[in-house]
């Protein structure tokens, strides 16, 4: 206050008292601060340690499995595996690779299409009780064990409709199984799109479809793609529902809906691993290795697609 001598309303004595109070207070705060800093530091270290520990728990099995498969498969890997069909308990995996690709593409189209459309419906239109009912139904669908899907597919499609073991039965069964993942992530991603986007579009006289296609869906794409990746990865890795519906074949897949059993990599992993012959076990590891490579490729491609589409995103 001494630097303001012209101010008559603040006498010297009062400002001294203020300063005293302030000094006492700052000492108190300092002491408390040091104390709480040590406890805080201790708590923070525990939290960090727990975080690292759980991270380790998650990563270790993944690294062990991938490492084991790669170490078993790679040293003996022959490229003829890619170019020849399975014969008996040996040969290559050409028919299984082709089968898995056909299944992935089919699931991409069927589950991707159905999932995105139902996600759009759930996020934009299903705002009443019926919408909540649909949402819970979808969650129930996601919770049904895959073997149950397989058995239902078998009874309904393979037996009742006389489709036989077939590509159609396999695709429908697998797609229904993974649709909830796509629709859920699409719904959530669309809900997170700023409302200003659609409002701005409406105010400009853009049609609902135009806003959806050019603005909101584009903005939600990273979420949608994540859902599709999860769905396709699950579909690629499933064996049980396919055993019941797609059967198995040592020939290249027939592109027919019915009476077209086909091979797929997970069948090779599952069947050949339990065979006594060394070539069969080797084939099993090759199939697992190819599955891992495929999933990694899928993730890389999707990352590239997403990053290209988000060039003008608000979050960059």
């Amino acid at each position: 206050m001494s630097e303001l001598p012209n101010n008559p309303s603040s006498p010297q004595s009062q400002s001294d008292a203020d300063r005293l109070n302030f000094e006492t207070l700052s000492k108190l705060v300092e002491v408390q601060g040091i104390k709480s800093n040590t406890t805080r530091g201790f708590k923070a270290r525990i939290a960090w340690s727990l975080s690292y520990l759980t991270l380790l728990l998650v990563i270790t099995p993944a690294v062990l499995i991938v490492g084991h498969v790669v170490l078993q498969a790679l040293p003996h890997f022959q490229f003829s595996v890619l170019t020849s069909n399975t014969t008996g308990l040996g040969g290559g995996l050409k028919n299984e690779i082709a089968g898995t690709l056909v299944i992935v593409l089919g699931v991409l189209v069927i589950a991707g299409g159905l999932g995105i459309l139902s996600g759009i419906y759930l996020s934009n239109y299903a705002k009443n009780k019926f919408g909540n009912f649909l949402r819970s139904s979808s969650e129930v669908l996601a919770g049904i064990p895959s073997i149950v899907f397989g058995y239902v597919g078998y009874i309904a499609l393979v037996v009742h409709f006389h489709w036989g073991f077939s590509l159609g039965a396999g695709l429908i069964t697998l797609s229904l199984m993974v649709v909830p993942y796509v629709s859920k992530t699409t719904e959530v991603a669309l809900r997170q799109v700023p409302s200003g986007y659609s409002e701005g579009g409406e105010a400009l006289g853009l049609s609902e479809g135009y806003i959806l296609r050019r603005i909101t869906l584009k903005s939600a794409l990273p979420g949608v793609v994540t859902g599709i990746i999860v769905a396709v990865a699950i579909a690629t890795g499933e064996t049980a529902p396919l055993l019941y519906t797609a059967g198995y074949s040592q020939n290249l897949p027939k592109l027919a809906v019915t009476h077209s059993p086909l091979g797929y990599l997970t069948y090779a992993v599952w069947t050949f691993y339990n065979q006594p012959s060394k070539a069969a076990v080797q084939l099993s590891y090759d199939a697992a290795f190819l599955l891992i490579v495929g999933v990694v490729l899928l993730i890389v491609i999707s990352r590239i697609v997403v990053s290209a589409s988000q060039k003008h995103s608000e979050n960059r």
Binding site: P194, G196, Y197, E199, G200, G201, A203, L204, G205, R214, I215, K218, S219, Q310, K311, H312, S313, E314
Partner: peptide, 13 residues
Amino acid sequence: GMLFQRANPFPMS
């Protein structure tokens, strides 16, 4: 047309 309180450019160029 309409202009809003918060600028809301679309996520495009």
